[in-house]
């Protein structure tokens, strides 16, 4: 039982990071029908911004973090939207799928060629002590990660529901045409969504890199898990993506311990297929009406 509890909590911690990725993913989908196949690489890259800042430019860790935030917002938010998504949006989903797949390859190979193919240690933000909770060893880092990620999601929810900009963003997501008529600057709202996605990716990156090390190929699994989490939870809901992320983190951890190792990675895939077949709108999602 203690091991189960331990696995459960550390699963929640990684799951909350998956949730950050999944939420960014759903936000982009809602705001601009963008399926970002490079989402995993978006999470891989900011950690390397930080590492490059400390190693090559000799910046201190906090300064490097600040520089990395700005770079992430500029490149993964503004640049991504302006250079790739804007010209492709009028042509439907498929060209965006292809272009973001290519972008993912570009980012991955870029890090491999210009930085390193090795897995680099990333400074932990918190001590790796463990606490004894009811006989189970729970690491401080897991708790901190969980709290930060959930805090970020809560802030995001507050922003979306409680501020004028947030409500304008929701209106844009629901119906851009009507929002425009009502005077919402739709284009700027979509830009904010891309910036938020970049911010979430940065946060996920610095939270997950101390656990999994920073490596150019990290995005492959992360991206896939983010998709699965978003779909399992509900593609059109923030809390759906949150639930999906947490669920997948826990399932992933538990199946590593209790399911045969070779088929461990099959569990999320099978879950995905079952969910799509039984409840295509996701566990917490609302069915989207069919438009004629």
């Amino acid at each position: 039982m203690n091991t189960f509890f331990q696995l459960f909590v550390s699963g929640l911690a990684t799951g909350s990071i998956y949730a950050l990725a999944a939420i960014g993913f759903t936000l982009l989908w809602q705001a601009s029908q963008t399926i970002n196949f490079a989402q995993g690489e978006f999470i891989m890259l900011p950690a390397f911004f930080v590492l490059a800042g400390t190693q090559f430019l000799g910046l201190s860790f906090p300064v490097a973090m600040a520089v990395a935030v700005v770079l992430s917002l500029l490149l993964l938010g503004l640049g991504f939207k302006r250079i790739i998504i804007d010209p492709l949006l009028p042509h439907g989903v498929l060209p965006i799928v292809i272009a973001t797949i290519a972008l993912g390859i570009l980012m991955k190979e870029g890090v491999k060629q210009f930085y390193t193919a090795e897995a680099l240690p990333f400074p932990a933000l918190f001590s790796d002590r463990t606490l004894n909770v009811l006989g189970a060893a729970i690491s401080v880092q897991d708790i901190a990660v969980l709290l930060i990620a959930l805090g970020a999601v809560a802030l995001l929810q507050l922003f979306l529901n409680g501020t004028k900009i947030g409500r304008c963003m929701q209106a844009t997501a629901q119906n851009p045409n009507v929002a425009e008529i009502l005077g919402v600057p739709v284009r700027r709202m979509i830009l904010y969504t891309f910036l938020i996605n970049a911010g979430l990716a940065f946060l996920a990156s610095i939270l997950i890199s101390p656990i999994y090390l920073a490596k150019f190929s990290n995005g492959e699994t992360l991206g896939l898990i983010a998709f699965i989490a978003a779909i399992v939870g509900g593609f059109n809901q923030i809390r759906g993506a949150l639930a999906g992320g947490l669920l997948l983190g826990v399932i992933d951890n538990l199946s590593a311990a209790y399911v045969s190792a070779p088929y461990r990675s099959a569990v999320p895939l099978i879950l995905l297929i079952i969910i799509i077949l039984v409840r295509p709108q996701g566990l917490l999602g609302k069915a989207e009406g069919r438009t004629v």
Partner: peptide, 8 residues
């Protein structure tokens, strides 16, 4: 990298 850029 070149390949991916060309595709984009």
């Amino acid at each position: 990298m070149i390949y991916a850029t060309l595709v984009i």
